[in-house]
Design a binder for these strands. Sequence first.
DNA 1: CAGATCGTTCCTGTCTCGGGAACAAATTTA
DNA 2: TAAATTTGTTCCCGAGACAGGAACGATCTG
Lengths: 256, 256
Amino acid sequence: MTTNEGPGRTIQSAEITLNIISELQTQDATRVTALANRLGHSKSTIHNHLHTLEDQQLVVREDGEYRLSLRILDMAMHVREQIGNYDVIRNEADALAEETGEIIQFGIEEHGKVSYLYKATGEQAVETLSGVGKQQPMHSTSLGKTILAYLPQDRTERLIESMDLERFTSNTITSADALRTELEEIRQRGYGIDDEENIEGLRCVSAPVENGDTVLGAISITGPLSRFTDDRIHGELSELATGAANVIELNTKFSG
Amino acid sequence: MTTNEGPGRTIQSAEITLNIISELQTQDATRVTALANRLGHSKSTIHNHLHTLEDQQLVVREDGEYRLSLRILDMAMHVREQIGNYDVIRNEADALAEETGEIIQFGIEEHGKVSYLYKATGEQAVETLSGVGKQQPMHSTSLGKTILAYLPQDRTERLIESMDLERFTSNTITSADALRTELEEIRQRGYGIDDEENIEGLRCVSAPVENGDTVLGAISITGPLSRFTDDRIHGELSELATGAANVIELNTKFSG
DNA sequence: CAGATCGTTCCTGTCTCGGGAACAAATTTA
DNA sequence: TAAATTTGTTCCCGAGACAGGAACGATCTG
């Protein structure tokens, strides 16, 4: 089940345009013919779509090469502000990064995955692949599992059903029942952990930011096995995470 | 001349989808009927387009309300990196902000306007309306005029022809010929200034970042009339701006 | 200067897609 | 509680949009 079959029909020409946008996102600079070949459409089709995109100022053309315009940056700013109280999240994450020296991330659920809204990097932090806007599976990350644990029951169950629980390391949870047990455990103690389930050598702790009967997202601390002992994780690190989550919670609760 | 009549046709359905995206960018959370009314289309039409957008994971739906997904953030990251050497620009801008305590901005030309790629704010900086991704006219800003001065001759002329040279303050340049003279002056001394031409009480200095026979963009220092005397502008401030521009120039010249 | 490749334009037939109406579900009002 | 709105969704249909192919210049390459 890869395609999310929602209600309604799907518009072909819109799909083409959106596919062009996706192409322009990843490929540095692209020309008409290259896009036509890559997307399997005629040159004239791509040509007209690019013309439309340029007309709407979403794409810029510099001597034959096309790229997304800076309007995307403006859109990104708006998107950030539409999610809870972005400033509070950033402040708390920065503070945590400063204090722990590790990687702090804030993630929310989108389309059955964790999407990273913000990332703060401490002094001695390890670099991870994930960056702002990137996605990760939910079942193998502490952020994902923590969010799953605090979403409304039915929503959680529907998400689990649609997951394929791919294995990434020997620790990855790959059965739905094991995942359900893990979520119950997270609810018991109030925070989630990732014990090398997504990437070998990396551990995380996550605390949920609740919002009424659902969950806004979660904040996590990530670090190497060497510095992330069981004692530290279940001690100071989990406390720091839940503390930050609480501050965010208090500041967003009354704003929407 | 508002619409940029380029070559080729324009795709209606794509326009609808892109208009929805624009709507979602500005309005916080929107539902089917509201969008239908605002864009002047039937509910079924909007419905199908939203379905397409959600299918492509560019839009998220949370109990009936739609918003742009965090994929936009990912796209924004890519866009930044596609423009010259973003890291160098950021470093130089931050350094300048630190040193001067004022607002530093880096802008490029897009669709006949200045778009801001990065903004660094010093300690005692005045807040301006413009943010990352936002647009400003070229004829009334130091960034815009400086970029115009260093674009290829024919490109500059075509841009001037298509501008409407709106007046914002008593100092705004509103005639094409006066603008051409100003550009020549900028080329003479190597940097451009904005003497309360865009906003009352604000002055700027900008230096171009050249790139072969064209210009990548420009970097500017903005501040209040009180601190930006003629002496300072034509002395240390213009030197700081051109210095930073040169560093960026050197670092981008060999990578693109 | 030939050959190839590019972007652009024009045309045509098919099937897409926008709109309207009817329906169902949720929300509001009395 | 029931009636009355308003919502999101589905279905159908005919007009016309739009994807593709071919042909044309323009540009690049050797």
